[in-house]
Design a protein around this nucleic acid. Structure first.
Length: 927
RNA sequence: GCCCGAGUGGCGGAAUAGGUAGACGCGACGGUCUCAAAAACCGUUGAGGUAACUCGUGCCGGUUCGAUUCCGGCCUCGGGUACCA
């Protein structure tokens, strides 16, 4: 036995744990570096090879930064509230906490084997009352805050009340849905309930009615994802849109700051772009249309194109719009009711993805264009969403593609009001598509004819503001975040109800712990599971029975790591002043919009309260890709117990069957294992090709039922943690999604053995030379130092592993086992393969861990070259190579090329039109 | 539908700044060592062609002396789409 990974890894893992090598100190003179992974949800299937991908990358970076002299905070914890444990509880009666803790322990065991440098003393779990105390605490702060637009910050609700007491709300500039203006006397005269209702419209955590997908049979609300064709995915029961009272976070108050903050952080352009689109800022105007025959009704629409008001030929309101029942005429009632029912059964997702299927129905009523006085029909259609803008639009078919398609489908008039630059107005009935560009000149628009689009927008906004029928408005696509879930396994709200009015629980009574229930299902009358709890009260009053969503606990966990054992505060001033924010955050890009928006709002809010030091929680973000499964298949000839190899299967009628990837190696089936694996296969026969049974394969999601889940334990046992770490990095670029395939792992394993053998003789005895390295050896070493450090800075770990392989090959070829080379190589490699690095470091006589050894410094003089082989290309076609000094000038290079024998025959009788010289690159000659 | 990505040999992938396409690894083939095997080591390996050379980075087009890289239009796949985590 040569390189014994089992012994080495066990030895160093216990050394790290016993000596608390990775403990981060809140008091240090060193510069800090906070590197964080998105914490996992501990699922029942255990850790699979996809999880460690990001953790290995962050671990490499954390260890690198320790070598670089930073005080590194690198914690890990668990996002432990979630649906799967609750579903399992519903099915089996096992308390979600039991399942969750069991899964956490399993995760921990698996994580430990891979040799991560986490500071486990700082572990957090979102389901731990000591942790969710602070989630509830933050909720109370949100409940007791409003957004003051004047100071552009969250402000205490007491300040708002004080303002109401003195001036009423007329001078208040807040993020609010409250449209009512009241005086201080009116405020004082209000009942407790009225005051509470008014304040709800200002609070950052508020209670309001929203549309949800309700499944009466299951008694729960469903995600859009869980609704297919109007039926619940689970059970196939009917689902309908229904209004429900829910807790909501007023994150839209932060929309502009979320946009502005993107400029200050180091995230990829694509994620920033996704966030910008998610926030969806659009400038336009809110315009009020009267409804013909309903003098009391004002139908407010938002449009980004107020300039096109003269081209509005109809209006569309969402099927859920409050006015539907008010304006539908008796003749249209049947059709409208039918349509509303139809739309009710479709989730927003379905409605958005089926825009090609145009549907809608006329209400029978007409809106009055406030500028032209024209009467235009009001339709209902599901392409208008209740949740965006005002749920009503003015349709300008000539200049909006969806309106255009709708108008064509229902034969509604189309009026051109914008004419492209240099074009003549034309008959829209001949158009194939609408003219959506915000460029051109106004036509058919009365007083604004001849204006540019830009001028017209300004002009119309001024006009409607003067007339009091609308105003310029910035609209965001971002919606307030619904914060209620009708589930058991989540944080209870610290809210109780007295006379139907919600009140906050006193801070000193936190946490409000999850109660025991007899079942994890909704009650018979559709109340959430917490309604089953005995004595679910506070001071004798009923407590809120909803729980918080998954993102509650994950929105501020990075702050708790800074000071995880503090029972008096979320985190101490000292801790947050020292650690400030996360320097490097790693996680999947599936969180680009959701989690990363919520966490940013959470942090900004705490920053407004003066609790955190920096507005943006995550300075740099890296998204690692997903690891997909690679399923293997065997092909059974129908009606037999005979299996035919992949390339011969077309000659037979076969059935494709999943086969466990653990008995397939490089697509070759282990026939013996196949026979013993399942008694049914004991007598299986095989039709082989070249003496082998070759399996088919497909890239799919990793899942138990596809027999393609690779958990890391088996690989760690077989090849060692260092091999797994290197291999996962070697698999491809960190940010790319890639299928898991173990066929290359041998190569990495060979590399480590080769490294080991470089410093061990044939008897596995450590041998090291104290001689000075030769210039050639130093060149190999320093090329590696240069390349690997550049790769680490670019998070290009796959190429770094390639460099290690090349380096060790080169050193082996030179027979180099010099101490000076080993010591530097050990430090260089230790972030990637820490166990073998520790072992070699200790063998070469060092005391203590390699972890804090200074990182090797690249010296260019060892790698500098005198000459360089320049490829020369004539007209981009003929090529040859020419050896020239590195520091050559363009003129000398041209001369050397002209004189080169290879060039002579190409240059004969021709002149050089262009000579392109790029130092240390190709020389290009155009003749 | 909308938003964000990605498509390069048999496979995973490499290619500072637009400059020798295919580094490194796997697999395959050939060889050394061995009684044999394993391990290890050496060589070949994009396609076509004896060769000079030609063709090749999802498809079509453009810019350029030169495009995997930049621009326009598609196709396919992956992620997100607000209650999966």
């Amino acid at each position: 036995m040569e390189y014994n990974h089992i012994e080495i890894e066990k030895k160093w893992q216990s050394y790290w744990a016993e000596n608390k090598i990775f403990k981060a100190d809140n008091h240090s003179d060193k510069p800090k570096f906070y590197i964080l992974d998105m914490f996992p949800y501990p699922s029942g299937a255990g850790l699979h090879v996809g999880h460690p991908l990001g953790y290995i990358a962050s671990d490499i970076y954390a260890r690198y930064m320790r070598h670089k002299g930073y005080n590194v905070l690198h914690p890990m914890g668990y996002d432990a509230f979630g649906l799967p444990a609750e579903q399992y509880a519903i099915q089996t009666g096992t308390h979600p906490e039991v399942t969750t803790i069991k899964n956490i322990n399993r995760y921990r065991e698996q994580l430990d084997k891979i040799g991560f440098s986490f500071d486990w003393d700082r572990e957090v779990r979102t389901c731990d009352p000591k942790y969710y105390k602070w989630t509830q605490w933050t909720f109370l702060k949100l409940f007791n805050s409003w957004y003051n637009n004047t100071i552009d910050k969250a402000d205490k609700i007491e300040n708002l009340i004080a303002e109401f007491e003195i001036y009423g709300n007329k001078k208040v500039n807040a993020a609010t849905t409250c449209e009512r203006i009241f005086s201080s006397n009116e405020w004082k005269a209000m009942t407790e309930k009225e005051k509470s209702d008014i304040l709800m419209e200002y609070r950052l955590a508020y209670l309001a009615e929203t549309w949800v997908n309700w499944c009466p049979k299951l008694g729960t609300v469903l995600a859009n994802d869980e609704v297919k064709d109007g039926l619940s995915e689970r059970g196939g029961y009917p689902v309908e849109r229904r209004k429900m009272n829910q807790w909501i976070l007023r994150i839209t108050a932060y929309a502009q700051r979320l946009l502005d903050g993107l400029e200050t952080i180091d995230w990829s352009d694509s994620v920033k772009e996704m966030q910008r689109n998610w926030i969806g800022r659009s400038e336009g105007a809110s315009v009020i249309f009267k409804v013909d025959g309903h003098e009391d009704l004002e139908l407010e629409v938002f449009t980004t194109r107020p300039d096109t008001l003269w081209g509005a030929t109809f209006m569309v309101i969402a099927p859920e719009h409050d006015y539907v029942s008010l304006i539908t005429t008796p003749e249209q009632k049947t059709a409208v009711d039918e349509y509303v029912t139809y739309a009710k059964n479709r989730s927003e997702r379905e409605r958005m993805s089926e825009v090609r299927h145009i549907s809608g129905v006329f209400t029978g009523s007409y809106g009055i264009n406030p500028l032209t006085g024209a009467k235009i029909p009001i339709w209902i259609a599901d392409y208008v969403l209740a949740g965006y803008g005002t749920g009503a639009i003015m349709a300008v078919p000539a200049h909006d593609s969806r309106d255009f398609a709708f108008a064509r489908h229902f034969n509604l008039p189309i009026i051109q009001v914008v004419c492209g630059n240099g074009d003549q107005p034309s008959d829209p009935s001949t158009w194939e598509e609408s003219y959506d560009a915000k460029e051109g000149t106004m036509v058919n628009s009365g007083p604004i004819n001849g204006m540019t689009v830009k001028q017209a927008i300004r002009n119309v906004i001024d006009k409607i503001e003067q007339m009091g029928i609308g105003h310029g408005k910035v609209n965001y696509r971002l919606r307030d975040a619904i914060f209620s879930r009708q589930r058991y396994w989540g944080e209870p709200f610290p809210i109780y109800y007295k006379d139907g009015i919600p009140y906050p629980v006193s801070e000193k009574d936190l946490p409000i712990e999850l109660p025991e229930v007899d079942a994890f299902l909704p009650t018979e009358n559709g109340e959430p599971p917490l309604a089953r709890a005995k004595d679910w009260t506070y001071k004798g009053y009923p407590l809120e029975t909803n729980t918080m969503p998954g993102f509650a606990g994950s929105s501020g966990y990075y702050l708790r790591y800074m000071d995880p054992h503090n029972d008096n505060q979320y985190f101490s001033r000292q801790a947050v002043d020292y650690w400030r924010n996360v320097d490097l955050y790693l996680g999947g890009d599936e969180h680009a919009a959701g989690h990363l928006i919520y966490a940013r709002v959470w942090n900004k809010f705490l920053c407004d309260l003066g609790l955190t030091s920096v507005e943006e929680p995550f300075q740099k973000l890296i998204n690692q890709g997903k690891i997909q499964g690679r399923s293997s298949f065997v092909y059974r000839i129908n009606g037999t117990n005979k299996y035919v190899s992949y390339n011969l299967k077309d000659q037979y009628e076969t059935t494709k069957l999943y086969v466990d990837i653990n008995i397939v190696k490089n697509d070759e089936l282990d026939i013996e294992a196949f026979r013993t694996h399942n008694p049914d296969n004991k007598d299986a026969e095989f039709i082989l090709e070249d003496g082998k049974y070759i399996c088919g394969w497909e890239i799919e999601k990793m899942s138990k039922s596809k027999y393609n889940v690779q958990n890391p334990d088996d690989l760690v046992e077989k090849y060692g943690a260092d091999t797994l770490r290197l291999y996962e990095m070697f698999l491809g670029p960190l940010e790319a999604s890639k299928p898991w395939d173990t066929s290359g792992i041998e190569g990495v394993s060979r590399f480590l053995k080769k490294l080991w053998r470089l410093y061990h003789d044939s008897n596995n005895k450590f041998c090291l030379s104290n001689d000075k390295p030769t210039p050639e050896e130093l060149k190999v070493l320093h090329k590696a130092i240069d390349k690997v450090e550049n790769d680490i800075k670019k998070f290009s770990f796959n190429t770094a592993v390639s460099t290690f392989m090349i380096t060790v090959n080169d050193l082996a070829a030179l027979n180099c086992n010099k101490r000076e080379v080993l010591d530097q190589l050990t430090v260089l490699i230790s972030p990637y393969a820490p166990h073998i690095a520790e072992e070699l470091w200790s063998l070469s006589g060092h005391k203590g861990s390699v972890e804090y050894a200074p990182y090797p410094i690249f010296k260019e003089e060892y790698t500098r070259e005198d000459t360089f082989e320049y490829p020369v290309s004539f007209n981009g076609k003929v090529r040859f190579k020419i050896n020239l000094p590195v520091n050559i000038t363009a003129a000398d290079a041209q001369k050397a090329v002209e004189e080169a024998p290879e060039a002579q025959r190409w240059l004969e009788g021709k002149t050089i039109r262009k000579f392109i010289f790029v130092p240390k690159r190709i020389l290009n000659v155009v003749i």
